[in-house]
Nucleic acid binder design. Sequence first.
DNA 1: ACCGTAACACTAACGGTTAGGGTTTAAAAA
DNA 2: TTTTTAAACCCTAACCGTTAGTGTTACGGT
Lengths: 195, 195
Amino acid sequence: MTVPPGRRERKKAATRQKIADAALRLFLERGYEAVGIRDVAAEADVAVTTLFSHFASKEALVFEQDQDFEQRLTQAVTGRAPQEPLLPALRREIQALVRHCTADGAAPIWHMIDTSPTLREYEESMRLRHAESLAVAIAADPVLSLTTTACRTIARFVIDAYALAREAADPEAAVDEIFLMIEAAWEVASPSRRT
Amino acid sequence: MTVPPGRRERKKAATRQKIADAALRLFLERGYEAVGIRDVAAEADVAVTTLFSHFASKEALVFEQDQDFEQRLTQAVTGRAPQEPLLPALRREIQALVRHCTADGAAPIWHMIDTSPTLREYEESMRLRHAESLAVAIAADPVLSLTTTACRTIARFVIDAYALAREAADPEAAVDEIFLMIEAAWEVASPSRRT
DNA sequence: ACCGTAACACTAACGGTTAGGGTTTAAAAA
DNA sequence: TTTTTAAACCCTAACCGTTAGTGTTACGGT
């Protein structure tokens, strides 16, 4: 699966990283809106077109590892221990992700995001994609047999939990509070009763 | 409260409507992406800057009556009969809104929205604003006493219901299905138990 | 050694959006 | 009524994210 990457792929990854680093540095120094794409490209010493071949948009420069987020969520569903119920696994993962993004080192980045309408909007539409992926993962689970609507609903609720917790005064408590509500919703949607 | 509007405000409203009409006509004729802002302005016979003084963005031209939507939601909360429980009132309103936007006449518009990533993204971020307003309305209700997080969670869930139902095969059934789940979540969050 | 192609560069443009600065006219103040 | 204010509108020019078009280099498979 993981063959040793050739020089080409290493160079490509290096370029991508160079761009991401330059972008983050400039954004934190001067503010997101005050930095133009051409500035970032110049700082990273690449052409503007090259930048856009690595990142789909200016906002994507900030959410560089958004695929990690998505994968961790779907992994939490597909890779959980056999017989393990769905929601505790998801709750654990969301809890970890919230902790991760409210850690001290990440504070400046999230402050930048929170004060930029553009970035907040982008983040939300990103979460929506994540919710869709999560819904697919849930729907694919043979143990559960839910309607499509129920899968998508639960997936949205879980993403909501993340979004709301991130902004709450006490993020970890918020995750617990919201997941209590999701568990209740789940019980209604899930046809499998064990009693 | 409603003083007879002066000539000025009437003219302004007329201009706004003229722009919205021109935009919708062109969008439906040639497709959203194929029509430029300059085209719309020319068709409505106004300057581009005038267009942008009435609408904040190109996408906003499509969701012209988005404030109606927001108001109907908050009205459903603040203007419901005394003693009437919250969720049935909200369910009724969402049901009506879903019916409204899946009506036959509206089909071309929603098809346009559904086939344009830009418009879908915009719609979602609009819904998010609606969820915030709804959360505030719920939090302001003296009969209910919920945590801030619970208010925002319920508000998000309700907006999710709308968004998911709009895309479901049977929208009205989807609203019912999702509201069953929300009711369950609500029971957990609401401290007021009546037996 | 050779070819296909992935990665990158450069220029120029497109399209949404805004700044700057001016004219008209409804409406409020004198 | 007359005067003043300011809202609504116009025009031009630009800004900035993004993309198309067109080459050039150099890695990797044959």
